[in-house]
């Protein structure tokens, strides 16, 4: 009898909640519907890159359904990965990006440590000033920078224009302010007692940084590294201005200037090149998504 009564009570309660959960179910369904719609919108261009990259040139100019591959071929990939020119672009991009990451970290980690922990005259103003320089866009600076580096070449004879390594000087202007800002907020979140203990134990400031702050703020360091790498990899304006010879170009500029010959667009190869060029950031993102997002949100929530 008692079990029967409980059974009766069960459905009753379920019905009561049922009306609410029915709303909830519909809200969920609508959410999924719209999310699918937006996901399709987001993923159409990259998927279309993939689709086109698997087509031969005959199929690209045929009047068949462009959203489907009827005769998949890897010829575009074979051709691009076999061409020294494309590999050269890839190599240049990799060198520039890795170099910029190293330079950025060497500059911004000590600076962030000093600004976060060692209050000195003007440190608060400097921290705000760094954040403001982050707002000065590349499209405002490229003309004076171009003129400056041309002038350096005229005065000293050191020709930096049209050399890929000139980008190692220029990209840090994009990466250092933001990375310093991220690192300041990560360092500031470390409890003061930890570094006080280290100082009392006789550690120098340098040891406090390398032995304590860097290991503890490792997630922030990874986020900053990812940011610096993806920014350098994606930068388009500066290499377009500063480099022109085909052996000095980085990927985005290389694809656009060499694979588009006059009015002839070799779309199969362009899409393959673009997809391979987008691969490193995508791979990093796929494996380190949480760090990527942490870096993205840290900058603005703290600002």
């Amino acid at each position: 009898m008692s079990t029967l009564a409980i059974d009766k009570a069960g459905p009753n309660r379920k019905i009561k909640y049922g009306s609410m959960s029915r709303d909830r179910v519909w809200a969920l369904r609508w959410s999924y519907f719209f999310l699918t719609l937006f996901a399709v919108f987001s993923l159409t261009p990259p998927l279309y890159m993939l689709i086109t990259s698997l087509k031969g040139s005959a199929e690209i100019s045929a009047a068949t359904n462009p959203w489907w591959v009827f005769h998949p071929t890897l010829s575009n990939y074979v051709e691009l990965l076999g061409s020294n020119q494309y590999l050269r672009f890839f190599w240049n991009s990799a060198m520039v990006s890795v170099g910029v990451v190293v330079v950025t970290m060497l500059i911004s980690v000590p600076a962030a440590f000093a600004l976060a922990r060692m209050k000195f005259w003007g440190s608060a103003v400097l921290a705000t000033g760094i954040f403001l320089t982050y707002l000065i866009p590349d499209s405002l600076l490229f003309i004076p920078l171009f003129k400056m580096f041309a002038a350096i070449g005229d005065f000293t004879g050191i020709q930096l224009i049209n050399r890929w390594y000139v980008l190692l000087f220029i990209y840090p202007t994009l990466t250092v302010p933001f990375c310093t800002w991220i690192m300041i907020s990560y360092f500031a979140s470390i409890p003061k007692e930890i570094d006080e203990a280290a100082i009392i134990d006789g550690a120098s400031w340098f040891q406090t940084l390398t032995r304590i702050f860097i290991p503890v703020a490792m997630p922030g360091l990874i986020a900053a590294t990812i940011f610096a790498f993806t920014v350098s990899w994606a930068q388009f304006l500066y290499p377009l201005v500063f480099t022109t010879s085909t052996d000095q170009l980085v990927l985005p500029v290389g694809i656009i200037t060499t694979l588009i010959k006059g009015d002839v667009f070799n779309w199969g190869q362009i899409m393959t090149g673009a997809l391979l060029g987008a691969a490193p950031p995508l791979v990093i993102y796929a494996f380190l998504m949480d760090y990527y997002i942490a870096g993205l949100t840290a900058g603005a929530t703290k600002g």
Binding site: L35, F38, A39, S42, L43, T44, P45, P46, Y48, M49, T52, I60, S61, P66, T230, W233, A234, F236, P252, V253, I255, I256, F265, W267, I270, M271, A274, L275, G277, A278, P281, L282, Y285, A286, M289, Y292, I293
Partner: peptide, 26 residues
């Protein structure tokens, strides 16, 4: 993860895909 993909691809690369999607004849 899926919705953030446009932000991750370097804009120069993804704009090429859009250029191809907007191609006058194809």
């Amino acid at each position: 993860g899926m919705l953030l993909v446009p932000w991750v691809i370097p804009p120069a690369m993804s704009t090429l895909a859009w250029l191809w999607l907007f191609d006058p004849s194809y």
